[in-house]
Design a binder for these strands. Structure first.
Lengths: 197, 197, 197, 197
DNA sequence: AATGAATGAGCGTTCATTCAT
DNA sequence: CATGAATGAACGCTCATTCAT
């Protein structure tokens, strides 16, 4: 087996376990047993459990961004594509193994002093925000730039709340409320737009 | 020392540590050392760390509801009192030791199978939702009942998102975005109200 | 079993193993197996293997100083009692389990940065030197004070060399050479003494 | 790179690390990283870490004997050349990276059962003794043969003690005491010599 | 002749919990 | 009612060594 293949096997195994059971409640022993490798093999690929955690976060993030983008591009353009960001959460919530947001959950598990993981997570969220800004710019080009940023931030907030709360309550209602809220906000923009014309 | 006093000392000590460091990263030894009691004393008051966790969650929740209620009652009635729920988060965020939402963080730390803690947390959130429904009913009495419930749910979503995200980003901007979003929603209700009159 | 008894059991067991096999080559598992206790029991008495090492060094040192003192007090006074310090090494070398000097051996095993253990060892040696100074003062009172210190230092050197080399060569000849050397030095002092009278 | 060159690179690297950090505290990984070679390359030159240890001991020993011989040959003949053996220790102690006697330190680290390394070390010390015997024979030819052997043994003892103790105390005073002791012994031989003439 | 990925055994340490006193 | 000594299981991690390429 190639080195990169082993590495990928480790990341995939760790990702499944970390996301399902949590970072602290998943032991290295469990990961290597599941992956069918020796402990030292894991440690030849990752210096520490912490490094493996970062690989897990990146793997999850990349996957998510791809899935969202694919999902949104199937939708009509304009407002609908923005709403699609939140609609994406419905199949996500219903999918096997949905367990909330790995960022929020991992932040909750690590000591406050762990800057490395904390920064990784913050950067992921900033990346997602940047993605949403671009999406707003593309689909609501007539909006003022600062309004575009504000709207993106608000979609971000609604997205995050919907993920956390649907997970906590084990129900999709928070997603629907977020969608509803977003529609209200978009309506307001439409009105403002009309009235200024 | 009376039995109830010892119990309260334990709960307070555990609460401070659990909230600051997280549930899994706080050891029993740390709690008894901080409280200055013997290990068996702790176990004579709580059957397990899990039971202590529930006491911690309840202690935190009671405290929060009192604080929110006190804060909101100082404000004018009507819409402003609803907005106050979110404005409450600003001093909360700025307070020493702010560390996000204990419910979200604890859910992230325990195994999915732990029904006891999970139910406790879900019930707390349902209690908070019920509080918000009452608040909407009191302050926007003209709204349709189902609209009142919906609005309360949305305030809940905005509240939760603001707590989580201000914690994650270590910045209050998510709180301000939530407030802004809520104002937009309330404006819409006002318009609808006017138009139907 | 009382706490102090368990502690003593641990120290005795660790001492036997550390001295026989060396510090690094003796695992915690071996110590607890030999002592018949649980791992956590050991760690409730000693914070780390390093702390146990220091207890080992102190246990050995105390034992040694007692044995030397007892041995020397059985001898005639004067020069003979000084020579007795080195003669003590003959039964020591022949005793079961003789394995050289724990100080020298432990210094060889720990990283240079380990100040805690290093200081402990240096202090033990300084204590032994102080003991020898007193012994010289008592038994050769007519000698100049600075000559007394010098002689004590030289006895110290001969003692240390004899221990190390008898261990390395697995033979007592270095002890006999040290004794011979000491006698030469004492003879010289006698001559000087006579000629100045 | 030629095979012999690679081998020498390995030995030099291992020597530096073993002597500085100790045998057990130096890992194979550290050696190959420092030498810039692959793990299997090391194992193609040395069957085991133990074999590499022996190469290290031999490398150190050869170097030492050369240095001592060079140092002593620069001195006047007679007693002064014998004293020079101990005076050699002053620049040795002051040199960068002085870390005591590798033989004593390595003996302290290996299991008693390891005959291979043990014998190597004992033979080195016997070789050094033989060198000293020759030195005494050459520089004090009038002494009785058995007295020559005895004197060589005593110089050996003083040498060894001075190395160990200057290392342990991190101070050169043991070297000076050894030199002083040796001078006393040599004085005595001179007197004996004179009185028998 | 040289590589580097993989290994099994072991390391020192910490955990929540129990029980005799 | 409160104690503190003791526990078994699990933790994250490192070691010298091997083998297919």
């Amino acid at each position: 087996m190639k080195k990169s293949e082993t590495r990928e096997l480790i990341v995939k195994t760790a990702t499944e376990l970390f996301y399902r059971k949590g970072y602290n409640l998943t032991g290295i022993n469990e990961i290597i047993a599941e992956a069918g490798i020796a402990k030292a093999t894991l440690y030849s690929h990752f210096r520490s459990k912490e490094d493996l955690c970062i690989a897990y976060l990146e793997y999850k993030n990349e996957d998510l961004l791809n899935n969202i983008d694919t999902f949104c591009n199937e939708k009509l353009v304009g407002e609908d594509r923005l709403i699609a960001v939140l609609e994406f959460l419905i199949p996500f919530f219903e999918s096997d193994g949905f367990n909330g947001c790995w960022c929020i959950r991992t932040v909750a598990e690590i000591p406050k002093e762990n800057e490395k993981i904390r920064k990784t997570i913050q950067n992921q969220k900033k990346g997602f925000l940047a993605y949403l800004v671009t999406l707003v710019e593309t689909n609501l080009p007539d909006l003022e730039p600062e309004e575009q940023v504000k709207l993106a931030s608000q979609i971000y907030m609604l997205y995050e709340g919907a993920v956390s709360e649907s997970h906590l309550h084990n129900s999709p209602w928070p997603i629907y409320e977020s969608i509803d809220l977003l529609k209200t906000v978009l309506d307001k923009h439409k009105q403002t737009d009309l009235s200024t014309q």
